[in-house]
Amino acid sequence: MTIVVHIDLGKEWRGGQRQVYYLIEEQIKRTGLQIYLASPYNTPLLTKVKQNFTNVKTIGLYSSFEFDLRNIFKLYSYLNKKDFNIILHTHDAKGAGLGYILKKIFPHIKLIHTRRVSYKIKKIWAKRKYYSADLIVGVSKDICTALKLEGLNGKIVYIPSSIKKQRYVVKKDNRWHNPLRLGVIGALSPQKGHELLLRTLVKLNLDFELWIIGSGKLERFLQNLVHSLQLTNKVKFLGFVESNKVLSQLDILIVPSVDGEGSSATIKEGWASGVPVIASDLEANLELIKPNINGLIFKRKDPSSLLELIKKLLNNSELYEKLKATGLQEVNQYSPVAMEQAYWKIYNKNI
């Protein structure tokens, strides 16, 4: 019997938590595999798994603090089983810290970290917890490269994030809205590039509206920026909405990320919805977007290039159709089944 204990200390329901959910959903179909999920009490991830997968043991933790002794004691009985093959799989930075401590207590377990951001690992403590892993999964090649620069070469595997294509409604009407409807989806946080996008769109001499879909700490700042740029009548803050509820209503999806991104779920969601994607030239985006084939790329150092690309799409219906059709094909390679099979392969290698 193999036991897999997933740890995610995030309290939100974002891309990383959705990936854990998809992975568990596929893993429970395997025989001889017992799945546990440890996450703080009442988090959306823990609640959804508990409600939908009755054969998964959910472990409610006391906090998202990686050094919380109560969490360690709570997990003790689940990991103190030397007669079983145990894989401890962490999915966020704080979870990786908790995993490091548990590995010290239970050296017989195999520790796997999944890293979803490409930021440089700066702190000594942060480096130590990644060095302790038996294997580290980077969800983009850019993340894998960053990890190799930290001296972790022999421990790194690339497994891209997945998307459940059937959740999305494909945009069928290829007529443009009037005004042109642009959209940006993601947490309202600095790396997502909302400020860059707003300061660029103020120069767009077309009748348009921008839907900002997501919530986060920058909401008030961005609302004030919209007011100061005199874009109040053009920008709508929709708050957190599941992307599959709104994507097919957009004309163009913009992904203006400025740093730190992993394997962009938003780009894949645009593909699955048949909505053309214009993304920044961030390395992780370039892994997915082939310019003029499945999307378009603008330069972060020359954001005015975004304006030219919007006009290019408006004036080229053939390109619009090509991006839509290619994206719908491209997204097939990122299924949850393919992701789970890749993880199963590395699990077996480390048992």
Rank of each mutant, 00 (worst) to 15 (best):
V4K: 01
L23A: 01
R30I: 08
Y36V: 03
N42L: 10
S63M: 08
S64M: 07
E66W: 10
F67Y: 15
L69N: 09
N71F: 04
N71W: 05
K74G: 10
Y76H: 13
N85M: 01
I87V: 09
A96I: 12
L98I: 14
G99H: 14
K103G: 06
K110Q: 12
I112A: 09
I112F: 06
R115Q: 13
S118M: 10
A126E: 14
S132M: 13
A133G: 07
T145Q: 09
G151F: 09
N153H: 05
V157L: 02
Y158G: 03
I159W: 05
Y168T: 02
N178Y: 15
N178P: 02
L180M: 08
I185G: 00
A187V: 06
A187Y: 03
Q191I: 13
L196H: 06
L201W: 12
K203I: 05
L206R: 08
L210I: 00
I213E: 01
Q223H: 06
K234D: 02
V235I: 06
V235S: 00
E242Y: 02
S243M: 00
D251M: 03
L253V: 13
D259G: 07
T266P: 03
G274M: 03
P303W: 11
L306M: 11
L307Q: 09
E308P: 03
Y320L: 14
L328S: 07
E330A: 10
V331L: 01
Y334I: 00
Q341S: 08
K349R: 08
